[in-house]
């Protein structure tokens, strides 16, 4: 778009065939998402959302609304889910007792299983499993700590952690087939 020129974005309406009417039941069948259908779209969640103040991309009412409408693809792949700070303010204020934060977590679980997690978060999870820290520690970090008179970082129970992720099947979502560990 060149300067001074305004392009009208053309959009098709959302059509029935684009909607998955079972999506809401799928969410409601998970423990965390069980109250989603009680939402009456009042917006108290979004009105007080501390993330929403910083970015208008994140609106719990919109996510819940899209989910109830059946916009499966948009909700799970859109990436907005991952912006929630899980502060539970929305959940505390929802007059219909929709546990919104938990619903978001339920949706994250679904998105994760289907491989729609942002790569940066997957990376953090891999670090966690491999080192016990979400950020990889480096030799220079250790050195810097020593210079500052800080103790060495404790050793994490990495082996236990790996047992858990293997037993729960979590591990298969972390690595693609080619970089099999």
């Amino acid at each position: 778009m060149s300067e001074g020129e305004y392009k009208v974005p053309i959009k098709e309406p959302i059509k029935t065939k684009d909607l998955d009417p079972d999506f809401k039941y799928e969410i409601a069948d998970t423990y965390l998402g069980r109250h989603i259908t009680a939402c009456f779209k009042c917006g108290a969640c979004t009105g007080g959302c501390p993330v929403g103040i910083l970015t208008e991309i994140y609106k719990p009412r919109q996510i819940i609304g899209e989910a109830l409408l059946g916009m499966r693809e948009k909700v799970l792949t859109g990436g907005e889910l991952w912006l929630c700070a899980t502060c539970y303010t929305c959940e505390d204020r929802c007059p219909q007792k929709v546990n919104i934060t938990d619903v978001i977590i339920a949706l994250r679980n679904m998105a994760f299983r289907e491989g729609h997690t942002p790569e940066a978060l997957i990376e953090q999870a891999r670090n966690m499993v491999e080192t016990g820290w979400i950020q990889k520690t480096t030799a220079s970090m250790d050195k810097r700590r020593e210079e500052l008179g800080l103790s060495r970082l404790p050793k994490m129970a990495v082996e236990d952690m790996q047992k858990i992720v293997k037993a729960t099947g979590f591990i298969k979502y972390l690595y693609k087939k080619e970089d099999k560990k």
């Binding site: 779209k41 917006g43 009105g47 007080g48 929403g52 609106k59 009412r61």
Partner: peptide, 12 residues
């Protein structure tokens, strides 16, 4: 007063 206006789609 904070609220989200549905029509504007923004926090107020």
């Amino acid at each position: 007063v904070s609220a989200e206006d549905l029509y504007v789609g923004k926090q107020l």
